[in-house]
Design a protein around this nucleic acid. Structure first.
Lengths: 227, 227
DNA sequence: GTCGGTTTGTTCTCCCGTTCACAAACTCCT
DNA sequence: AGGAGTTTGTGAACGGGAGAACAAACCGAC
């Protein structure tokens, strides 16, 4: 009934907590690179930009790592969170739609370094299929099913124009992909059990614009003729 | 104290509603282009991918547009939402960091068509300053303050590497920018009154990976040695 | 061994957001 | 004009997340 996946609470970790775990993972990685052995919840929370009480509650959902009176062991906690998220091994990813954004995504180093590996770039435009982007040849879109099966791809990224996105999503789902990251500015309808996360640049800007407008106008609101 | 802006509820429209208004605006624009004159809440909600009751409550926060027994007039409602968001006129935007992602953003047509106009591209790398991207010359970063003042820029986009992001944010704030869209994978500390929205690609992927992992494992969880 | 200081894990409360369900209000047909 | 049908706007119940505050647990000193 709902647009979100209602029974997606797989075990018992709240969705809001899941969304913050990558923040903690990143902060812990930075601490580890600075050769810090232990850290307090206060320190880690500051590094991640969240409240320390929230951090402790989040971590309590995955277990009782950490020692009272001492704090958390950086490397140990980092591994535990990585394991919980599932990025102790690499996930194969395909990117569909190799325009400006798709090329930027293919070149994005953050993927490779954080548990993801781009195994194929796909595009329906035959002109792009002669190009090589980020060391990978751009391949025809109809090779999707074979590539997904071959590499065991579970995550697909859509960076096509909006009109093509739904068809691409359908094809991804048919091929067996159950998680989609959608950059196309459109709503995707997918079957139950398939997760879609949306990144929408113009929506983010419009939200900023709303607040910006409110900052500018002190309190003039009702005195407008709108016919 | 908090990392979010606590007193940002400018008037009385809930934040969750504000985040959905751009969705409705987009759906209404699509309906208008299909020459549809009126639409029901059910129809608009389906197009936007949300619940119809949620849609009606959202719209009720901006006023009582719509006619019972009939629905909403597409063009009228579209204008009202655009006015509420503040995209009836264009917002000048600067993009800082013209790497792969910055170039993709500069070329993104959705900005221009949805109330935003990129007025300048900035980069600290002098090698990039000879390039022309999306019809705009890449200019030195130290011209920021002048550009912001000249065009009345209120919104800045950061697409630099993570280590440079905080310094860029500081410079934006000093120049007078009060809204920042941050693509760098790091937490930005900004003064009260400045809004930051974050788009983080690897976090989105990690959230997908978490759910994907839970789909794969039916219910094996505690039986792991972790030392 | 005991005591003080420190930090985690957890409980409790409050608030925001979602959803259901229904009254109010409008149109169209007779 | 009146009634049937339709759709909006909203009141109320419900669930989840945020934050404060505190008890439990650990370390180190004496």
């Amino acid at each position: 009934m709902s647009d979100r996946t209602p029974a997606e609470a797989a075990r018992d970790i709240p969705e809001a907590t899941v969304a913050r775990l990558p923040l903690y993972l990143r902060a812990l990685t930075a601490l580890a690179e600075a050769d810090q052995v232990t850290c307090s919840s206060e320190e880690l929370a500051t590094a991640a930009g969240v409240n320390s009480a929230k951090l402790r509650k989040d971590l309590s959902h995955l277990g009782s790592y950490g020692t009272r009176g001492v704090g958390y062991e950086v490397e140990y906690l980092r591994y535990q969170i990585a394991r919980e998220i599932g990025v102790t091994h690499d996930w194969p990813v395909v990117i569909v739609g190799i325009g400006n954004l798709g090329q930027a995504l293919a070149n994005f180093s953050g993927f490779r370094s954080r548990g993801f590996r781009v195994v194929a770039l796909l595009d329906a435009d035959s002109q792009r299929q002669s190009e090589v982007v980020a060391g990978l040849a751009v391949r025809p879109f109809d090779e999707l099913a074979g590539i997904v099966a071959e590499h065991g791809v579970a995550i697909g990224v859509i960076s096509t124009p909006a009109p093509a996105a739904q068809a691409v999503a359908d094809a991804l789902v048919v091929s067996g992909v159950r998680s989609i990251l959608n950059f196309a500015p459109t709503h995707l309808a997918v079957p139950e059990g398939v997760d879609v996360r949306k990144v929408d640049l113009s929506i983010e800007l419009q939200i900023l614009a709303y607040h910006e407008q409110r900052k500018a106008q002190p309190d003039a609101l009702d005195d407008e003729v709108t016919a």
